[in-house]
């Protein structure tokens, strides 16, 4: 169980995780915020689909990857939360298709 050590007054921001609103402490990294919310796994690997969560917390392991505001494979331990941030678990490989220009075909 991830728990807060000092329960003194903190400021909060609202983010969404997989379309659910979550209140998290301001100033935390995305990884720390999601851990404190005890969300379990952060991603499923593109190789086997197995679940993973942060391992090193210092930008080395790439197991904390999530989708932030539509941008895939972001290292959540290096990025700070902010109000309104949209976070999704990173399921498998990065999906870059939605960002293609409107008029050019459909996703295969």
């Amino acid at each position: 169980m991830f728990t807060r050590v000092n329960k003194n007054n903190a400021k909060f921001v609202s983010i969404s995780l997989d379309n659910q609103t979550v209140k998290v402490r301001k100033g935390l990294t995305v990884a720390a915020a999601l851990l404190e919310a005890n969300i379990g796994h952060f991603r499923q690997t593109p190789v086997s689909g197995k679940p993973r969560a942060p391992f090193c917390m210092m930008g080395v392991c790439f197991d904390c990857l999530v989708v932030i505001d539509g941008m895939a494979n972001q290292q959540s331990c290096l990025i700070e939360v902010c109000e309104g941030m949209r976070i999704e678990r990173q399921i498998g490989p990065a999906d870059i298709i939605p960002e293609k220009p409107e008029d050019q075909g459909t996703k295969p």
């Binding site: 169980m1 991830f2 728990t3 807060r4 050590v5 000092n6 402490r25 935390l28 990294t29 720390a32 851990l35 404190e36 379990g40 796994h41 952060f42 197995k50 679940p51 993973r52 969560a53 942060p54 391992f55 090193c56 917390m57 210092m58 197991d63």
Partner: peptide, 25 residues
């Protein structure tokens, strides 16, 4: 060692120093 909820001790310390988060039990 690749399971979620397995972290390095260093990671736990980073959570403590930077985010005042502890991992109970």
């Amino acid at each position: 060692w690749t399971l979620p909820q397995v972290m390095t001790v260093g990671a736990a310390q980073i959570l403590l120093k930077e985010s005042e988060i502890g991992i109970a039990d």
